[in-house]
């Protein structure tokens, strides 16, 4: 199952795009409750957001973004049938991509 959920809504002036990524976003400073050992850092470093293959936003982030990162954007002009794609890479080399069609 994809780790990325994308929702969009066409409004009068813009199109609202909301995206939720399932990711632990461990800072590397948190301790395991049972063993007391540090949980290794594991966080997303880059997220890119494309609209019809055009790069709309590239986000670089540190461990300061909350667990299961949520982002929202406003596209000025989008048509029904346009494709939104979101992809992320984390510090351990994992990555994922998802696409969404605007209705």
């Amino acid at each position: 199952m994809s780790t990325i959920k994308i929702r969009s809504k066409r409004l009068a002036d813009y199109t609202l795009v909301r995206t939720l990524i399932a990711h632990p976003m461990e800072t590397g400073k948190r301790k395991d409750d049972d063993t007391g050992e540090l949980i290794p850092a594991h966080f997303i470093q880059t997220v890119s957001f494309k609209h019809n293959d055009q790069l709309m936003s590239q986000c670089q982030m540190g461990p300061g973004i909350a667990k299961n990162p949520f982002f929202s954007y406003h596209i000025k002009s989008a048509q029904a049938g346009d494709i939104i794609s979101i992809s992320w890479q984390d510090n351990l080399g994992y990555s994922d991509t998802a696409e969404h069609i605007i209705r």
């Binding site: 982030m61 973004i65 990162p69 954007y73 000025k76």
Partner: peptide
């Protein structure tokens, strides 16, 4: 926390959640 590049096709708008 984060750094976003924005294409001119986007409104100056960002929503996020942080620690």
């Amino acid at each position: 926390i984060a750094k976003f590049s924005l294409n001119p096709e986007l409104d100056a708008f960002i929503g996020a959640r942080f620690k």
